[in-house]
């Protein structure tokens, strides 16, 4: 880890100005990912701009019946918030499936979106990596690929996005509020993260100096018909090999609306509206869920070691949708997958 300068920002404007004016500067809030990456020498910022004092710690109801969550709300506060537990239990569950209680206490809502990949080679500062050093090559391809992407990868990068929370946010159709030197804007969640293409160094569509200020959720729906199912190499405190956020709205015994997003399989939470559309009007069944899973996984391709993820994802989608349709969501402390 290198030494760096430090600025404690008192206002949003001050923070943005401090970062926008210095290409080597970065925002820091919870620090749970950035400080780790700095110790590995992956991130080498010249200056950190501390935004933890900014007034972004509140949650408020929106006029449309939704919820706006300040970017600095800690993950644990969000997961255990009474409104979130009641209205957005899928989000709560996904957050609690991730990291550890200590990390969730420190990590923030905005920071969760900005987590960087756990690709082994991204972390190995001595290995070529297009995400870390554009143009240096991808060491993962042809290497140890068990944890890598099966969807949306490119010849430049096969990394995955590590967040659990974001998978739920994708399924719920959240909106990201952003502020930067050129003012404020909103971004639909599916447009926030990007696929690697030939510029894997860009995890998302934020410009330098832009900051996430809030996440907005639409009015609640789905009731108890949701589930977050995470499959990993030990039963807790591990990144997902595959995770699924599923939610359905039932009209009698038929599905009126379905949402499915996958984690651990792509450079961003993976959602395909056409796959969800296949479920409209269907009676919940493994067969119907399987068809949606196939559509969701269309074009999936493995690197060899991670080929299993394609079948695992298919099975996980069917199971998570079954849990959602039955109104028996996965409980994160219970390791029996119902």
């Amino acid at each position: 880890m290198i030494n760096f300068g430090y600025t404690r920002a008192a206002t949003i404007g001050e923070a943005i100005q401090a970062v926008a004016g210095d290409p080597q500067a970065r925002f820091i809030a919870g620090g749970t990912n950035l400080v780790d990456l700095m110790k590995y020498g992956v991130e080498r910022p010249g200056r950190l701009v501390d935004i933890t004092r900014l007034p972004l710690k509140h949650m408020e109801d929106t006029p449309g019946g939704g919820l706006k969550i300040g970017a600095l709300v800690p993950n644990s506060d969000l997961a255990y918030d009474a409104r979130v537990e009641r209205d957005y239990p899928l989000l709560s569950s996904a957050i609690l499936a991730g990291a550890s209680a200590q990390l969730r206490n420190a990590a923030t809502t905005g920071g969760n979106l900005l987590q960087r990949t756990r690709c082994y080679y991204f972390y190995d500062a001595a290995a070529p990596c297009n995400k870390r050093e554009p143009g240096s090559g991808c060491s993962a391809i042809g290497g140890v690929t068990r944890v890598h992407a099966i969807l949306g990868a490119s010849s430049s990068c096969i990394a995955t996005h590590p967040s659990d929370m974001c998978v739920a946010l994708a399924a719920l159709g959240a909106t990201v509020h952003v502020e930067g030197p050129d003012g404020a804007r909103t971004v639909a969640f599916e447009d926030f993260h990007r696929l690697p293409g030939d510029a894997p160094e860009k995890d998302n569509t934020l410009a330098h100096g832009e900051m996430v200020t809030a996440i907005e959720l639409p009015a609640p729906r789905f009731g108890s018909n949701h589930s977050y199912l995470k499959l990993r190499d030990r039963l807790s405190y591990a990144f997902a090999l595959v995770s699924v956020a599923a939610a359905v709205e039932l009209d009698g015994d038929r599905i009126a609306e379905a949402r499915v997003a996958l984690g651990g399989v792509a450079h961003k939470p993976w959602r395909v509206p056409e796959a969800e559309a296949l479920l409209k009007g269907e009676t919940p069944s493994p067969d119907a869920f399987g068809k949606a899973a196939d559509r969701l996984l269309e074009g999936a391709v493995g690197q060899g070691e991670n080929d299993f993820k394609i079948e695992l994802a298919r099975r996980a989608v069917i199971r998570a949708l079954s849990q959602a349709a039955a109104g028996t969501p996965q409980v994160q402390s219970n390791k029996i997958v119902n």
């Binding site: 082994y120 080679y121 190995d124 290995a127 060491s139 290497g143 140890v144």
Partner: peptide
């Protein structure tokens, strides 16, 4: 896990 090309432990 060793990367067989780099000869380094990746995890």
């Amino acid at each position: 896990l060793w990367d067989k090309r780099l000869g380094r432990v990746v995890n």
